[in-house]
Structures are given as structure tokens and as C-alpha cells.
């Protein structure tokens, strides 16, 4: 069409740009190491293999929720229904596997899909009915909280007849090595989510919608469809988290869910995902979730009262987000 006059910028991505783009992750990772080093010096019980696996194990539920939520937050949305939604999914898992006595695999798939269904409803409310994400998922949070109690009759459902179910969380897939299955599940879904976010159309549109929803729509992308897809996809992680928490406890507790959504959102934010949308990563979110569980673990080991742990976590969130703002100012 027109002749090339100047160098067209075919050159590969400069290292500086990569470092800059990943700075928030590097910062988060560095703080994780600092926290690790601090607790290792402060307590002789911290730096042990047993404690490492304990930290990883306690990251699983929040990590799973946070991975799904990362997609939602990158679109510029929010999902408050993941905590109580998780409790409802745990109850549904009990219904499927214990009450209805479905085969384990079928029950697991049905539970994950049930989470996806909740996400789908969120997505439809947000994308088609244009209800703001905060309100739509707040409503879903209450609905799920109530339904979990209604369906279970406000009583826990025990998986005592299903020893295989608890193995999903506490069993050791690798014989002779003390490495809980739950952590393997988290790693696998993190890898899948990471690939989806960075290598697929779903991921690209997730970022595009968060960056500029109107421009994305005018570029011929059916933003409504993709937003529904993102919320439904994030819902699958609610279902999975419901399985992981009930497998860990050996029972579906209808009332334990509230509060998890904020921990998961905190993990996402500490990991450098912007609440205004358009940027974020799965690696960052995992680091964020690890920071939270390492803090909780370390503070417990140092016998710091539970009440103080949340105070410290709150301060960590402020520091994490403020460094992100500082970084943006420099750019």
C-alpha cells in the first residue's frame, strides 16, 4: 500500500519492558521472600518441610477462588458471591455425593458445573440486564448464603461414607511423599488458568474488556457474550473451591463461606491485578494468595493472636496497592 519509510519496529520485546511489566509481580515475590526470611529467623518451627506443605495446603481454597476472580477483576468487574457461593457448592457436593449417592466423579463434575451455573447467572445479570457487578454479585452472595442453609437444613453434610472424597484434598498422589493432593490440584488449575489467560481469545478479550469495554465492543467483539463467559468460567472455580474446602474438612459446612471472598480479592489485588481492570496475572494472584497464607501461618507460629493477623493483613494490602500506585506514577 505505502512504502516502508522507517524501521517498522519488528524488533523483539526489550528486556527493560518485560521487567517493567512484571515489576509488581517481582515486588510481590520479593515481599513473599522477605516475609519468609523474617519468619525463618523469628521462629525455629517455620523453616521446615512440614510447615511449607502446611502453608501450601492452606493456600488452596483461597488460591482457587482467587484464580477465578482474577479473570473477573481483569474485566473491570468484581465477584462478591464467591465466598458464600463456595459454601453452597460444598453443600451441593454433599447433596450429589452423599444424599443422592451419585458416583464420585459425576458428583464432582456436577458440583463444578453448579459453580459455573452460579457464575453464568451472575454474568447474565451483569452483561444482559446491565446490573453493576458489585450489586449483582452482592445479591448472589446473599442468595447463595441462604440457599446453602435451606438445602442443607442448616446442618453439615458429612462425607464419612466417602473416604475417597477427603483424599482429593488430604491424600498423597505420590506414594511415600508427604505432599497433599490439594496442592497438586491448585497447581494444575493455576497452570490451566494461566494458559487460558495469556494464550487464548478468552484471555485477550478479558484484558481488552477491562482496558476499554466500549472500544472492544465497537471493534466487533460481542462483549456481552464474553463477559458472561468470564463470570461462568470464574464460577467453575467456585465449584472447585467448594469441593476442596469440604474435602479438607470431611464435611460440607453451610455457614462457612462469608469472608472468603474478601480474602480472595485481597490475594488478587496484592498480586498486582488492578481493580479498575485491564491488567493482572495468575502468577501474581498465586503469590498474593501465598503471602496471605504465609502471614497467617507465620503469625500463628509466633503465637500472635488471631485478631492481630487481620490487622497485619489489612496493612499488607495497603502497602501492596500503594507500591503499585507509586510504580504507575514513575511510568
Amino acid at each position: 500500500m505505502v512504502t516502508t519509510r522507517e524501521k517498522s519496529g519488528v524488533a523483539g520485546r526489550p528486556v527493560g519492558a518485560v521487567v517493567k511489566g512484571r515489576l509488581q509481580q517481582l515486588l510481590a515475590f520479593a515481599s513473599l521472600i522477605v516475609i519468609f526470611a523474617f519468619f525463618s529467623v523469628a521462629s525455629p518451627f517455620f523453616f521446615t518441610y512440614g510447615n511449607f506443605t502446611a502453608i501450601l495446603f492452606s493456600t488452596v481454597v483461597i488460591g482457587t477462588l482467587a484464580i477465578g476472580t482474577t479473570f473477573v477483576i481483569i474485566t473491570g468487574g468484581i465477584d462478591l458471591s464467591i465466598g458464600t457461593g463456595m459454601a453452597l457448592c460444598a453443600v451441593m457436593s454433599g447433596v450429589f455425593i452423599v444424599n443422592l449417592d451419585l458416583p464420585l466423579a459425576v458428583g464432582l463434575v456436577a458440583t463444578v458445573l453448579f459453580g459455573g451455573l452460579m457464575g453464568l447467572v451472575n454474568g447474565i445479570n451483569i452483561a444482559l440486564l446491565k446490573i453493576p457487578p458489585f450489586i449483582a454479585t452482592l445479591a448472589m452472595m446473599l442468595v447463595a448464603e441462604g440457599l446453602a442453609l435451606v438445602v442443607s437444613g442448616s446442618a453439615p453434610i458429612y462425607f464419612s461414607e466417602e473416604p475417597a472424597y477427603t483424599k482429593i484434598s488430604t491424600g498423597n498422589l505420590i506414594p511415600g511423599v508427604d505432599f497433599p493432593n490439594a496442592v497438586i490440584v491448585l497447581i494444575v488449575v493455576a497452570v490451566i488458568a494461566g494458559v487460558l489467560l495469556t494464550k487464548t481469545v478468552l484471555g485477550r478479550y478479558t484484558y481488552s474488556i477491562g482496558s476499554n469495554e466500549e472500544a472492544t465492543a465497537l471493534s466487533g467483539i460481542d462483549v456481552r457474550k464474553w463477559k458472561i463467559a468470564v463470570y461462568a468460567f470464574a464460577g467453575l472455580f467456585i465449584g472447585l473451591a467448594g469441593i476442596m474446602i469440604s474435602a479438607r474438612l470431611g464435611s460440607a459446612q453451610p455457614a462457612t463461606g462469608m469472608g472468603y471472598e474478601l480474602q480472595a480479592i485481597a490475594a488478587v489485588v496484592i498480586g498486582g491485578t488492578s481493580l479498575s481492570g485491564g491488567k493482572g496475572s495468575i502468577v501474581g494472584t498465586l503469590i498474593g494468595a501465598l503471602i496471605i497464607s504465609t502471614l497467617n501461618n507465620g503469625l500463628q507460629i509466633m503465637s500472635i493472636p488471631q485478631e492481630w493477623q487481620n490487622v497485619i493483613l489489612g496493612c499488607v494490602i495497603l502497602v501492596a496497592v500503594y507500591t503499585d500506585i507509586l510504580r504507575k506514577k514513575e511510568a
Binding site: 484484558y207 481488552s208 482496558s211 476499554n212 466500549e214 472500544a215 465497537l218 485491564g278
Partner: peptide, 8 residues
């Protein structure tokens, strides 16, 4: 506003 993803 309607054409670009400015931060991309």
C-alpha cells in the same frame, strides 16, 4: 474513548 485500548 471508543477506538483504542490506550494502556495496551
Amino acid at each position: 474513548r471508543y477506538g483504542l485500548l490506550l494502556d495496551k
